[in-house]
Amino acid sequence: MDGHTRRDLPRADAPVATPVERDGLPDGAAAAAAAVLDAIDVETCLFCRDEAEARRLILQLLRGLGFADADVVSAEHRGGVARVRARAYLNRPGVPYPWLEEAGAR
């Protein structure tokens, strides 16, 4: 619980990334992603050989969708099927939050 290390913070005075620049997402998705508080989780089942492959595939999927900061939260493989949950952090704590700008505008 709360016992892990995160990547370094960006500089406080760093410009807030415009949504379209965020992790290379396409325009429409990037605008919606700006409202995400912290992370997006993707849960699914994969047909694959083993847990290692499940982890590799789900990360490949998330990164292919443009989410650079991705991790596997859980993965369990049984008899050719893997139940996986992966996470893409859009806003690690401490970064300039796009949703804050939206809230300010409102």
């Binding site: 619980m1 995160r6 508080l37 912290d38 991790d71 596997v72 939260v73 952090y89 690690r92």
Partner: peptide
């Protein structure tokens, strides 16, 4: 889960 910050 220890790979990142706890999400809302």
């Amino acid at each position: 889960y220890s790979g990142g910050a706890i999400t809302a």
